[in-house]
Amino acid sequence: MPERNLEFGKYGARGIKGHEAVARRLDALAHFIATPVTQHRGLVARLHYLTRTDHARQAARAAGLTVTGRTMKAWLDGKRSPSAKNLQAIEVAYRTVRRHNVARYLLARLNREGRGTRVEFHPLNQSQVPRPRQRVIEYRTLNVRHWDRIVQAWAEDDDAALDDAWVNDATVDLGSQWGEYEYVTSIGFAA
């Protein structure tokens, strides 16, 4: 297995790490609330999501949202507004709880009872690289059958574990060309 890129972009190539593209795609599949937390509608939607069950309230506390029920009610009624620090805590708690709630569902959809999901690798952008230094990198597809570690690392928001899982469980199956797809413009899959 080749070593990882140490000086990516030195000659003008552009792209993002493959695991970051996968995290973005999984975030899109999780269907987070679109309205920002800074608007009252987005704040209320997140607070309702975090307070509708005992399990959600416990997970929100574990994720760092530690305010009293009275304060929460004042926020929901619009009588008070949370500080910037609390808005950030609400957003982090919401994303953490949402990821944990949809992880099992996404895992079942992606694994598809052992059949896996077809993944599209869109190569990095070499338009700014001088012609003699450009490589021929083609669009590739691969059927990824084991999503367990990838989805678990995504749900825990562990960037290093997601990178390791993505490389060792997915891109290594590209064979000797896997290093060409460490950086990509995007990763596509449907679940």
Rank of each mutant, 00 (worst) to 15 (best):
S127G: 01
R140A: 13
Q88G: 09
A103I: 05
R131F: 06
R112S: 14
T96D: 05
D77W: 08
Y94H: 08
V102E: 02
Q88H: 15
D77I: 04
A153D: 05
I137R: 08
Q152D: 13
G116E: 03
V92E: 13
A160S: 11
T117N: 03
P123C: 03
D77V: 11
R135Y: 05
W154Q: 04
V144S: 07
D148I: 00
R131N: 04
A155W: 00
T96S: 10
D77S: 11
R80Y: 13
I137K: 06
L162Y: 04
I150P: 02
R112A: 15
R95S: 01
E113K: 09
T141V: 10
V97A: 02
L110Y: 03
D77F: 13
Y139L: 15
K85P: 03
L107P: 03
I150R: 00
I137W: 04
N111P: 03
N86H: 11
V119T: 01
R109W: 11
Q134F: 05
R118G: 10
R99A: 08
A89T: 07
A160R: 14
V119K: 06
N125P: 11
R95W: 05
A89K: 14
N125G: 01
S83V: 06
T96F: 05
D158G: 07
R99S: 06
P132R: 05
R98W: 07
P123V: 07
E113R: 13
R115V: 09
A108M: 08
R135N: 10
I150K: 03
E138K: 09
D157M: 04
Q152A: 12
I90L: 01
W147T: 05
E113Q: 15
E138N: 12
N125Y: 12
Q134N: 10
L76P: 02
N101D: 12
R98P: 08
G116K: 04
R145H: 10
E138P: 03
S81R: 14
L107A: 02
A89R: 15
R133Y: 12
K79H: 13
V119Y: 10
W154T: 00
R104K: 13
D159I: 01
A103Y: 07
V92S: 10
R80W: 11
A93N: 02
E113S: 14
E91W: 07
W147R: 00
S81H: 14
A153K: 05
D157Y: 01
L87T: 05
V136L: 12
D157A: 15
T141I: 02
D157H: 08
Y94E: 04
T96E: 03
N101K: 08
T96W: 03
I90S: 01
L142K: 04
V129Q: 02
D157R: 07
R104A: 14
N143D: 13
R135Q: 12
V119A: 07
R135C: 06
D159E: 09
R140S: 13
A103P: 00
L124Y: 10
P130Q: 08
E138T: 14
V102Q: 01
